[in-house]
């Protein structure tokens, strides 16, 4: 079978579908103080899944607020700096109006994913962290 680290080079999704891959990519991002991008990406996925799995409305609101406060509100944070202003104000409005929707972080997640695919991910595949592992 193909070793996992070769699969990681196929696509960002292959990498993020493997625990070791996630761990190594997170280490790499951490070196550049960008690990929040990955955490945010997973937080968005988890938030979307919450809808069908469990969760009172109260819990969803609390989680949406937590994601907003941690990653969006702080303008100096890596996630906040990378997301478009319009996307941020859309999320802000959802939180302020307590209008939480499973898809409310989708656009922001896509923006972060596009950045990772175009930048951090190809750099990761050339990084010492990855090469030493292989």
């Amino acid at each position: 079978p193909t070793p996992p680290y070769l699969k990681w080079a196929e696509s960002l999704h292959s990498l993020l579908d493997d625990q070791d891959g996630i761990h190594l990519f997170r280490t790499f991002l951490g070196q550049e103080d960008r690990a929040d991008m990955l955490d945010f990406w997973f937080a968005c996925s988890g938030f979307r899944k919450l809808d069908s799995r469990e969760g009172s409305e109260e819990k969803k609101v609390k989680l949406a607020k937590a994601i907003y406060r941690k990653y969006i509100l702080d303008n100096g944070g890596i996630v906040s700096r990378q997301i478009k202003a319009a996307t941020k104000s859309f999320i802000r409005d959802c939180v302020l109006k307590l209008h939480v929707d499973p898809a409310m972080f989708e656009q922001a997640q896509t923006e972060i994913q596009t950045l990772m695919e175009g930048n951090s991910y190809p750099l990761f595949l050339k990084s010492d962290v990855y090469l030493e592992y292989t």
């Binding site: 493997d18 997973f42 968005c44 609390k62």
Partner: peptide, 20 residues
């Protein structure tokens, strides 16, 4: 009731793949 940080951490973990 979980704190916001706990809730966030659980949410992140829930989205990650399970061990091979």
């Amino acid at each position: 009731m979980d704190s916001e940080d706990d809730l966030l951490q659980k949410c992140i973990t829930s989205a990650m793949p399970k061990q091979r």
